[in-house]
Amino acid sequence: PTGCTQTNGTDVTISDNATVESTITIAGCTGTAGSTSTVAVQIVHTYIGDLAVSLVAPDGSAYTLHNRTGGSADNINQTYTVNLSSEVANGTWKLRVQDAGAGDTGYVNSWTLNLGGSGTTNCTGSNANNVTVNDNATVTSSIAIAGCTGTASSTSKVAVQIVHTYVGDLVVSLVAPDGSAYTLHNRTGGSADNINQTYTVNLSTETRNGTWNLRVQDAASGDTGYIDGWTLTL
Rank of each mutant, 00 (worst) to 15 (best):
68 R>S: 06
188 T>Q: 08
119 G>A: 15
81 T>E: 13
22 S>D: 01
114 N>R: 06
205 T>I: 11
133 V>M: 11
66 H>W: 15
66 H>A: 07
32 T>R: 11
214 L>P: 00
82 V>S: 06
149 T>G: 10
125 G>N: 05
223 D>E: 14
104 D>R: 12
217 Q>C: 01
225 G>Y: 01
89 A>H: 09
190 G>R: 01
38 T>M: 05
199 Y>E: 01
27 A>N: 13
113 L>W: 06
8 N>S: 08
171 V>I: 13
119 G>T: 14
84 L>Q: 07
234 L>W: 10
125 G>A: 09
52 A>S: 13
15 S>I: 10
188 T>R: 04
8 N>K: 00
77 N>W: 14
134 N>S: 15
214 L>G: 01
104 D>I: 06
1 P>S: 13
45 H>Y: 13
114 N>C: 05
91 G>H: 13
43 I>P: 09
186 N>Y: 02
54 S>C: 05
5 T>H: 09
91 G>T: 12
220 A>L: 11
64 T>A: 12
63 Y>W: 08
59 D>S: 14
67 N>A: 11
224 T>A: 04
72 S>W: 12
72 S>N: 15
135 D>K: 08
211 T>V: 13
157 K>I: 04
39 V>W: 02
79 T>D: 12
20 V>A: 04
197 Q>V: 01
78 Q>T: 15
207 T>Y: 07
131 V>E: 02
197 Q>Y: 00
221 S>D: 14
168 G>D: 07
49 G>C: 03
92 T>K: 12
75 N>I: 11
101 G>W: 12
202 N>Q: 07
170 L>A: 05
209 N>P: 06
164 H>I: 01
138 T>P: 03
153 S>C: 07
221 S>L: 14
108 V>F: 06
180 S>C: 05
161 Q>Y: 00
37 S>C: 09
111 W>Q: 05
160 V>W: 01
59 D>P: 09
107 Y>S: 11
86 S>W: 05
62 A>D: 05
226 Y>R: 06
47 Y>G: 05
67 N>H: 08
158 V>T: 00
155 T>P: 03
128 A>M: 13
174 L>P: 01
47 Y>L: 08
110 S>K: 06
208 R>D: 09
164 H>R: 02
222 G>T: 09
113 L>F: 10
10 T>K: 08
87 E>A: 10
46 T>I: 13
180 S>K: 13
174 L>D: 00
201 V>T: 08
90 N>A: 11
116 G>K: 02
229 G>E: 03
27 A>G: 11
144 A>Y: 12
160 V>N: 02
126 S>K: 12
32 T>V: 14
101 G>T: 09
229 G>Q: 04
196 N>P: 01
16 D>H: 07
86 S>L: 09
22 S>W: 04
225 G>A: 00
171 V>Q: 13
35 S>D: 15
41 V>A: 00
149 T>M: 08
210 G>L: 08
207 T>A: 15
168 G>K: 03
94 K>T: 09
34 G>R: 06
10 T>H: 06
106 G>T: 10
